[in-house]
Write a protein that binds this DNA or RNA. Structure first.
Lengths: 330, 330
DNA sequence: ATGAAAGCGCTAACAC
DNA sequence: GTGTTAGCGCTTTCAT
């Protein structure tokens, strides 16, 4: 291979341990020898072998990120900031796309452990089955979807408040029959949003009607079908969609049916994806502070790795959400 | 740490080298001893230490992926299929987000080399400055943006043909003054699309007019401004946008100006991003076979790693594109 | 077919 | 302050 620490030692006329010292902390070394060493390093173009170092130190300077679907704009943005921030702290990111599949998820966790990552940032596919795979002494951070099973650090948005704000917005704009459109997944953020919806109804003394909660796949066709059915059976003048894509699917269908938006029906989404901005009409929505979630996750991870993990005192953070008013509400 | 090969050897009553043999190829070992070893492995829950193995073998079973922006749906889809396919072949993916930044790109390449990845899949930020950093004996695959500087394996779509198909489609639908809207980047796929545009004009004996080539940032606001200016100065009845987002920005503005689409002006995009499907009206566009590009890249990479690299005979693949007709063309 | 032993490149006691 | 040395856990000659 290339040049090793031995070569540097020889060139500098010192021992390997001295070289190692210089490179790692620089403590207990004269400035003089230190200089000699650095000169040799530069001269030979020496770069430490990270693998060998890892074998000794049990540290790889890499962290694993497990996402359900990197194609989902939400997770992509998260991945991006996490990667950036980790990288600034000299950590690499191993990306794992679980595809919302528990078996794959399990396999990935094992692979990451085999690779001796220094920590794992975990966006669960929604179930807790795999939580027990994480060793107690490995830094773990869960994002977005809270696992129940085990105590882990958890970072997310104020989803409940988001649902509340969205619903309140509709109510204050005159809606009295509000549909809540949710996806099929039994996953914590969506449930929190639903709770927020109920909270708002309660606050305004409107009664909660189970029938107004509509479940659908996120696919355009599914939403379309759902709305087609619903609009015959139910009367409504507002929709709170748990996801922008759900909202847009609904709007697309509603427009075709001849409804005016926001005149006849007002719609609000969740997530503020790019499409919600580009869409026609622009979608009113609840935005999460994704880059903050990402930053916070990365810095917490670095902290856990470098300043010790105390799984006994795991933390939860809930970052603020914000209503973005566009053209689908009055 | 955990259980090592020594423990297994002891448990099975054989030497470590025998255990190693059993685990790696199984050659030169009796079925009997092999069985003993496997039993011990299972009993102890032994998992080989990949780091230690890597130190010896110089193989890490990981490949680096450098993308300009994982937030871009195009790259995200690519990353997803690449990751999936690599994973099926027992390789992990190190994700690097270069942010279209050459310095970061360089830093990432160095980091990946330091980490001894077995190969690098590279979506360049458009410049060739960093190509020389790749060692000659490391498997390299460039995707989407072709580097000139050096001979590397290259996988992409038939961008030129895409531009041709798009323009031809407009022409055959009656357009006679076609704007080409492109981004600011001096990057190969966009230029190929432009070439295709010229080819189509030539074929139909329409003259190419430099003024009809409009450059803009991809941001909604920029596009809007551009279109606002253009529409006073120029007459046009068709737009070929080099990117869906560019197309949608244009449409949004045109609609506000009172034009009917596709009646007054027809528009076609490129990439078939999700938004183009959700958008209102649905955007006619040219689709690339992203998953095929991803698959091909991954399998080529595995092939290069496992069956030897011959950088002397690097390959180029250009995958087919397809016109998807929606509502912005007649 | 199996074992002993060297060594991948590094860090960290431990001596001095 | 600096050098010597023993490993980290594995693969791979080289004997036998």
């Amino acid at each position: 291979m290339g040049v090793s620490i031995k070569d540097v030692a020889k060139k500098a006329g010192v021992s390997v341990s001295t070289v190692s010292r210089v490179l790692n902390n620089g403590k207990y070394v004269t400035d003089e020898t230190s200089e000699k060493v650095m000169k040799a390093v530069k001269l030979l173009g020496y770069r430490p072998n990270i693998i060998a170092r890892g074998l000794r130190t049990k540290k790889t300077n890499s962290v694993g990120l497990i996402v359900p679907d990197i194609t989902n704009e939400f997770f992509a943005k998260l991945a991006k900031t996490i990667e950036e921030n980790l990288n600034n702290n000299n950590y690499s990111l191993l990306l794992c796309n679980s595809g919302e599949n528990e078996d794959k998820e399990r396999k990935y966790i094992k692979t990451l452990l085999d690779k001796f990552v220094d920590g794992i940032i975990f966006i669960s596919s929604g179930y807790d089955q795999n939580m027990h795979l994480f060793p107690d002494d490995l830094p773990i951070i869960a994002i977005d979807r809270k696992p129940n099973a085990k105590r882990v650090n958890f970072i997310s948005s104020e989803n409940k408040k988001g649902g509340y704000l969205a619903t309140k917005h509709l109510i204050e704009n005159g809606c009295s029959k509000i549909l809540m459109l949710k996806d099929r997944k039994a996953v914590s953020p969506m449930n929190a949003r639903l709770e927020g919806y109920r909270d708002a109804l309660r606050e305004y003394n409107m009664l909660f009607d189970e029938d107004m909660i509509i479940e659908s796949e996120v696919e355009l066709e599914y939403v379309k079908e759902k709305i087609l059915k619903i609009h015959k059976r139910l009367e409504f003048d507002g929709i709170f969609a748990g996801t922008d894509l759900l909202a847009i699917g609904a709007i697309k269908t509603l427009l075709k049916l001849g409804y005016k938006i926001p005149k006849d029906i007002q719609v609000i989404g969740f997530d503020n994806v790019l499409t919600s901005q580009y869409y026609n009409p622009g979608l009113t929505t609840i935005a999460q502070r994704l880059s903050e979630i990402g930053e916070r996750s990365a810095s917490l991870m670095v902290d856990l790795i470098e300043n010790g993990v105390k799984n006994t005192e795991s933390k939860s953070y809930f970052l603020p959400v914000e209503l973005i008013k566009r053209d689908t509400t009055r």
